[in-house]
Amino acid sequence: MTVTAQSRPAGLLLRRWRERRRLSQLELSIRAGISTRHLSFIETGRSRPTPQMILRLAEQLDMPLRERNEVLLAGGYAPRYPRAGLDAPELSSVRAALRMVLAGHEPYPAVVVNRWWELLDANAAVPLLTAGCAPELLAPPVNVLRLSLHPEGLAPRIVNLAQWRSHLLGQLRRRADQLGDARLVGLWEELRAYPGGLDPELPAGRVVLPMRLLADGGELALFSIASRVETAADVTVEELTIETFYPADTVTAESFRARLS
């Protein structure tokens, strides 16, 4: 099946992804098992790639499913990967698994976010972190990075704000660069304009960087671990990230257990 090709040729998109991955034509052609000449013809538009060739190159370039669909469309082909809403019946097992992870992580906070760090779900511990934030920052779609760094969000209560800003902005910049996503670049530009300073140095003696947050007159220390569905064949599922927060000290652990007991 073919569809109307988009304004940007498939070959140009593939070339941009090759350059983003810092691969030469020779390196990519070896990985994909094709000649450098053939790859050059594809990138310059002298040869129209088949959908199978697009997918072969996309796999070697480790392209996200969303972008693989875009290249297929640009080549005049139908998208290969579905993009169901998270509330769609076919994702019921995924939703159930996500809820199991979120609930099982209590009494500590856990969230599910999408590609742009928009909040899709959260467990009962998260409101303990967001108490006192401006209502407009908590109105859907909530962007958890904006909520963290905005002057009317968590930022005034983050003791090590400069370090935490450096961590979040660095993470956002890397994803924006990896994906070439203009929306992520725009978010990075917005957030870096917020006050708070930058301090990329890890505190002495620390193996992880905790977020140190003032709450009820005390201080909580939390670090996070992010998980993804590595076997995803749906765009929505591939773009999901579960971020679970863990206590960095016994005081924080006891505080959360007491709050949700």
Rank of each mutant, 00 (worst) to 15 (best):
E27Q: 13
A32C: 04
P135V: 13
Q52I: 11
S224N: 09
G104M: 00
V142E: 09
T241L: 10
R259D: 09
A74C: 06
A215H: 14
A162K: 02
L14Y: 05
R192H: 08
P200V: 03
N114F: 01
H38L: 01
L39K: 05
R174E: 15
Q52F: 00
Y77V: 03
N143F: 07
S148A: 15
F223H: 15
E19G: 08
T244K: 02
R68I: 06
H38N: 02
T244C: 12
R80Q: 13
L168K: 11
G75C: 07
A103N: 09
P156F: 06
G104T: 01
Q25E: 03
A226Q: 10
R174T: 14
E190K: 06
L98P: 00
L73Q: 14
V207M: 09
E67T: 05
P79C: 06
T236S: 10
G197R: 00
V144R: 07
L154K: 13
A232R: 03
D62W: 04
A97G: 05
L222S: 01
G186H: 07
E43L: 09
Y246M: 12
A232V: 10
E106G: 02
E243Q: 13
V251D: 13
G76M: 02
Y77A: 04
S92M: 04
L14E: 04
A58R: 02
E59T: 15
P64H: 10
R18C: 07
P107G: 12
N114G: 08
P79R: 04
G217W: 11
Y246C: 10
L39R: 05
Q25P: 00
E254W: 05
E201D: 14
G218R: 15
V251I: 12
P141W: 13
A162R: 01
G180W: 09
R20Y: 06
V101G: 01
L179I: 13
A78P: 00
E118R: 05
T4F: 00
P9C: 11
Y77K: 07
R257F: 02
L39V: 01
L98D: 02
V3E: 08
R16S: 08
P127A: 12
L260A: 08
E219V: 15
A124S: 13
M63N: 01
M53K: 10
A215K: 15
P247M: 09
A58V: 04
D199S: 07
P135F: 11
P79F: 01
P89C: 03
S93Q: 12
A74K: 06
N143E: 11
V159G: 03
V126Y: 13
G76K: 02
Y194M: 12
P247G: 06
M211L: 15
E43N: 06
P140I: 12
V113W: 05
